[in-house]
Amino acid sequence: MNELIPAFDWHQVMVAPWTEDLELFGWIGLMGLLVTASCGLVGNYLILRRMALMGDAVSHSVLPGLVIAFLWSGSRGTWPMFAGALVAGVTTTLLIDAIHRRTRVKQDAAIGIAFSTLFAIGMLLTSIYSQQVDLDAECVLYGEIAFVPLEPMVTLGGVEIGPVSLVRMAGVLLVVGLLIIAFYKELLVASFDDGLARAMGINPAWVHHGLMAILSIVVVSAFEAVGAILVIAMLILPGATASLITRRLSHMHAIVLVHALLSAWLGVSLEVWLDCSIGAAMVVGGAAVFAVVWAVIAWLNHLHTSQRPPSPTSTNDL
């Protein structure tokens, strides 16, 4: 057991990553923050629209899209990757619809069948073309966030900005943020009140498809960093934490950003201490934050109900 869990050294774990080793862990922490923040912002809408498991499905099924895009273009460029992810995301939604609309198989089973099939095809292609595709089972599961500092730097006008995937992730976060600001009202109305959205001339189907497209893009850029399954955690954990605390969508967005910061910070520390996969450590950090919030909220509720009897007119407005 002593081999497994090394001694906890305060300076080594909590201070050094942000001082002496900033060159290394700064990029990793920043990448974790960007990934969790963009996933969390999109994830908020998934949770509100009860589509959390579509996030699960899409995060598995972008894998074949990614592999085929690699094989097709022969490179690991950004645009083929996004195109592959979009195609895969659309295919997933179409497959799920084809199964549960046209047969008596229910939606939950349809989701399970569609994403596992696509993921299996992706895994098989990965093993078969392991020479050509720069992507292996390890990457699919653990992600490559640890290699972010080793990537070539993007330079703009002679100034180094940052590693390639980090710059891409920052671009994705920027686009997601701008889209949310631009279409805030449309997203809000379409997520809560289908009828009102129609009356206001918003087509809920377009909102749905737009959200799925953004989800595919976010998932595929996060995929490389943290792997297929941990993406689900980054989609759901921040939004779930936020929805425990508040009911206002704008506040939820703010809490998601704080949660992203905390999980990136805790994740790096946990990784330095235990020497495990960074992506998984960030998710465990985020889950710890969720657990603390859950406990505090439960305790506050307990205090609240024990101090005064529950009023029969207490409203549940959501």
Partner: peptide
């Protein structure tokens, strides 16, 4: 989704 990913 939360339990799945966290445990994983």
């Amino acid at each position: 989704g939360l339990v799945l990913a966290t445990f994983f």
